[in-house]
């Protein structure tokens, strides 16, 4: 226990580096996919169908992670799929955060009528199974990237609202907020200048968590064939195809699955790591 603090710091650092490194790699792959992908992700070629990954017998150079049953290169599809995954992660994550955190802040600091309305809405929202709600929304909005993002925001704003509300309530009861009031700050200014900065570490951790969740939601929607209507590769779509062909070509499922797994894990670990590093109490 003597070196407890040092130990924790070191572990948090390693966690930050590993998760940040993986996400940087995914970002690089997404941005430069057309240049770094060895093959055209959409090109079908029945002569190269179901090629195994490079270390197995029968592999062909240039198809490092093998091909699916239409002869499309798995690695190239993963790289191109990273684009949609990251677009959804960043835009849905940011929009959800903005809306949910704002409502949570208002409910937690102003209390009163606003709190009653927002809390009741959160209760109603929590009574829906999120995946079913998402599928229902996509059925209403139609498939497509925008629909996915809107669906994620509509479903998940409550996560931010609940946590930020509780946190804002805690902060609002503190002495420094009372002194700001005495100093003549308006309620709105107190909320933005005094409360918000103290809630930010929590919001940041939730934001990266939400990005990981967004990637999963997109994958789930692709899995039930309700994501984007074009041929563009998505990780969830690849997983759904791989699930069908699991006994013939396991690599079509394994590689996108591992990519998705590491990405989701990295997003949540990055959030936890950043929170540990920037939380003044722990530091």
């Amino acid at each position: 226990m003597r070196d407890g603090r040092g130990q924790i710091r070191r572990r948090a650092g390693l966690r930050l580096w590993l998760s940040g490194g993986w996400l940087a790699l995914v970002l690089f792959g997404a941005v430069f996919a057309p240049w770094v992908a060895p093959q055209d992700p959409l090109m079908q070629d029945l002569f190269t169908s179901r090629l195994p990954p490079f270390w197995m017998e029968g592999a062909e150079p240039g198809y490092w992670l093998g091909t699916d049953n239409l002869g499309r290169d798995v690695l190239s599809r993963i790289l191109h799929g990273a684009r949609i995954a990251l677009i959804v992660a960043v835009s849905a994550g940011a929009a959800t955060c903005l809306i949910g955190a704002t409502l949570g802040l208002i409910a937690g600091y102003f209390r009163g009528m606003a709190d009653i309305v927002i809390s009741r809405l959160v209760d109603i929202w929590m009574a829906f199974p999120p995946v079913l709600f998402a599928i229902l929304l996509i059925a209403v909005l139609g498939t497509g990237l925008t629909s996915i993002i809107v669906a994620i925001v509509v479903i998940d704003w409550t996560r931010f609202a609940r946590v930020v509300r509780a946190e804002a309530m805690n902060q609002g009861a503190m002495d420094y907020v009372a002194s700001a009031q005495v100093a003549g700050y308006s309620r709105l200014r107190t909320m933005l200048v005094e409360i918000l900065p103290n809630v930010l570490p929590t919001i940041g951790a939730l934001l990266t968590l939400e990005m990981g969740i967004s990637v999963i939601v997109e994958a789930i929607l692709s899995f039930v064939n309700l994501s984007i209507p074009t041929d563009d590769p998505t990780w969830g779509g690849m997983i759904a195809e791989g699930r069908q062909a699991i006994h013939q070509s396991w690599w079509v499922l394994v590689f996108p699955l591992v990519t998705l797994f590491l990405t989701v894990l990295s997003f949540s670990q990055l959030g936890e790591g950043l929170k540990d590093r920037f939380d003044p109490v722990l530091r």
Partner: peptide, 22 residues
């Protein structure tokens, strides 16, 4: 616990299919 919490049920399901199904 950290890994268990960060990975949702959908992914665990797929991993289990690979492990105990294939």
């Amino acid at each position: 616990n950290g890994v268990g919490m960060s990975v949702p049920d959908f992914l665990w399901g797929l991993l289990l299919i690979l492990l105990f199904g294939v």
